[in-house]
Design a protein around this nucleic acid. Structure first.
Length: 272
DNA sequence: TGTGCATGTTAAA
DNA sequence: TTAACCTGCACAA
């Protein structure tokens, strides 16, 4: 679920189906105090910023959710199933309900705490108020590899491992380029690629990269929706060279060395 | 049935 | 830089 497109999709669905409803809340696993406060309140609005979700209930009670790596959030318009044992928060109304499990954050925030949190987040390509100027300024600070800077949520918010790999591939940028060496023109292409991937993903519910290899079989596995992500050792759909997967700052980075230029900052120590 | 891995973040060393 | 945490899935056996 958890790159920015999924979060914005959830926000849109909740705006349409859950806002304006009066909920009772419970927490089969773990957050009785959150449920107690939310119970009996009407949902007034939902906002998404990067990978963070903010639900505003009457009385300016604000719920912050971050799905982390494993979180799931589901909604039901008719009868909901029995919540799983791991269900952290359940919101129930007459006509719709929500089940949340496995989130890394499910907490109530004061408006001040929410503002502090949001101030730490960078520009979100899916938000109408996103400023490419600010995004460029933040992204290109320092000599950190571009691929690593893209995952820094304080620079650009909502981009995850899939979008960074696919966007860098689509634009043909070397992932290890020092961030400060990214010129404005290349940034514009990269920003547009990320925004398109995220917007299409939010609309369709999943990311499918344009140019991804056609499905060999009807079952669509993840690696078949992408050009390089999760495709270590498979042929690059553009040039046929083998896609490379390696670890950068504890995350797997996928790229095609032939299509994405020379990796200029390769560390001398581990040659693989 | 069991194992490893994953779209993420944080705290500790 | 590393481990830890949370859950579900693909794949091996």
């Amino acid at each position: 679920m958890p790159e920015g497109h999924s979060i914005h999709r959830v926000a849109r669905v909740h705006r349409r189906w859950l806002v304006g409803r009066h909920f009772t809340a419970d927490s089969p696993q773990g957050r009785p105090e959150v449920a107690r406060v939310l119970s009996g309140r009407t949902l007034m609005g939902v906002d998404a910023h990067g990978k963070h979700l903010f639900h505003v209930f009457e009385g300016d009670v604000r719920l912050h959710i971050h799905l982390g790596l494993f979180g799931r959030i589901r909604h039901f318009r008719s009868q909901a199933p029995v919540p799983s044992a791991a269900c952290r928060l359940r919101l129930t109304s007459a006509a719709a309900s929500l089940h949340l499990s496995g989130p890394s954050a499910c907490e109530l925030l004061t408006p001040e705490a929410e503002a502090t949190l949001r101030a730490r987040l960078g520009e979100d390509p899916l938000r109408a108020d996103a400023s490419p100027d600010r995004a460029y300024a933040r992204l290109t600070q320092g000599r950190m590899p571009l691929a690593q800077a893209l995952l820094d949520q304080g620079r650009i918010a909502g981009v995850g491992n899939i979008v960074r790999a696919e966007a860098l591939f689509l634009v043909g940028l070397p992932p290890l380029l020092p961030a400060c060496e990214l010129d404005r023109e290349a940034f514009e292409s990269l920003w547009a690629a990320m925004r398109t991937l995220l917007e299409d993903g939010a609309r369709d519910g999943l990311i499918v990269t344009p140019g991804a290899p056609p499905l060999p079989s009807p079952g669509r596995k993840r690696a078949e929706r992408f050009c390089v992500y999760g495709r270590t050792g498979l042929p690059c759909p553009r040039c046929g060279a083998k896609v490379k997967g390696r670890t950068l700052a504890a995350r797997t980075l996928y790229s095609c060395a032939a299509c994405q230029g020379v990796d200029r900052l390769r560390k001398p120590r581990r040659a693989r």
